[in-house]
Amino acid sequence: MKMTSIKMKKILDERLAGPEYKTSYKRDEDSYRIEWKETGQGITIKLPNVVAKYNQRGDAAVDELEDHILEALRIMNEEHNLSGMEKHIYPVIRATSFAMETNAGEKLVHKEHTAETRVYYALDLGKSYRLIDESLLVKEGWTEERIDQIASFNVRSLENDYKKDTVAENEFYFVAKQDGYDASRILNEAFLEEMAANAKGELAVAVPHQDVLILADIQNKTGYDILAQMTMKFFAEGRIPITSLPFIYEDKKLDPVFILAKNRPEKNEKG
């Protein structure tokens, strides 16, 4: 039996039934929304995406979606504090196209990073996290500088274990701890300096998506081509894509580069 958006809506209605929730369906947008009756806070799901996942993975895809929805609703309905939670505040890397405010219109705390990336801050809640907005800072009486200092300290405390692969005499290192902060490790300057000190050639770094940090010891022209292909592949497959452009790490700076086939990269003029 072929799954349709209407059938998927009925499945979600059954799974998410509860007196505290209100659900709605917009036929013209093919979207499904569930929200708290009391506050109107909630999330909107594009049903064609869910149907596609269901056709690939069956009930497991709906199970996973249900978990994500209930976790998101739980977080929305909680009162969050920063004081006493300092050890659970981390930086997260996002593309510069990422939203700068929440759906409710609250400005997200952030700082510029490179021409391709921006740093946001997350309060880790275990199975998920909440991006920190300015209203939370105001409530706590915290400054953006304080959030940045705490988050920077915490990212340095994360383990930097990696897997290594050698291709055409170039060495590639992959940090993929699946803790939500793999790409964030690009902000650990001590780690980058250590990798640069041990590199035989030029150190390149890439954050194609949230759940991986790629470091490359580029020792010949072929290495740039391999890195470009690798970064593009990871970018296309990532759950939260960031950028398909790698960076050259030089003099404690990250310069986005366009990699030209068989050539050394040209630095992005914006970098």
Rank of each mutant, 00 (worst) to 15 (best):
Y25L: 08
K26M: 05
R27K: 13
E29T: 04
E29I: 06
D30T: 05
D30Y: 00
Y32F: 15
R33K: 13
R33S: 10
I34W: 10
E35V: 01
W36C: 13
W36G: 05
W36L: 13
K37D: 00
K37M: 06
K37E: 00
E38R: 09
E38L: 05
G40C: 08
Q41H: 11
I43F: 09
I43T: 11
T44F: 00
T44D: 09
K46L: 13
K46S: 13
K46A: 12
L47K: 05
P48R: 01
N49A: 12
N49P: 01
N49Y: 04
V50W: 02
V51Y: 01
V51T: 12
V51W: 08
A52V: 07
A52I: 00
A52F: 02
K53A: 15
K53V: 01
K53W: 04
K53E: 14
Y54E: 09
Y54C: 09
N55C: 03
N55G: 09
N55V: 06
N55E: 14
Q56I: 04
R57S: 12
R57Q: 07
G58S: 07
G58Q: 04
G58R: 06
A60Y: 11
A60L: 12
A61C: 00
V62F: 12
V62A: 02
D63L: 00
D63G: 07
L65E: 05
L65F: 06
D67L: 07
D67W: 09
H68M: 12
H68D: 15
H68F: 04
H68N: 10
I69R: 06
I69Q: 02
L70M: 00
E71M: 13
E71P: 07
A72V: 03
A72S: 15
L73M: 04
L73E: 03
R74W: 12
I75D: 02
I75G: 12
M76R: 15
M76P: 01
M76Y: 12
N77T: 01
N77Q: 13
N77M: 02
N77K: 05
N77E: 04
E78H: 06
E78D: 05
E78K: 09
E79M: 09
E79Q: 07
E79K: 08
H80E: 06
N81C: 01
S83G: 14
S83C: 03
G84Q: 07
G84S: 03
M85H: 15
M85D: 07
M85A: 15
E86P: 05
K87G: 02
K87Q: 02
H88D: 12
H88C: 13
H88A: 15
Y90Q: 02
Y90H: 12
Y90K: 11
Y90S: 05
P91K: 06
V92K: 11
V92D: 03
I93M: 07
I93N: 01
R94W: 03
R94C: 13
R94L: 03
T96K: 11
T96H: 08
T96G: 08
S97A: 11
S97M: 01
S97K: 10
F98I: 01
A99C: 04
A99Y: 11
M100P: 03
E101F: 06
T102P: 02
N103Q: 15
N103G: 10
A104R: 15
A104G: 09
G105S: 10
K107G: 11
K107Q: 13
K107A: 11
K107T: 10
K107D: 14
L108V: 09
V109L: 10
V109Y: 03
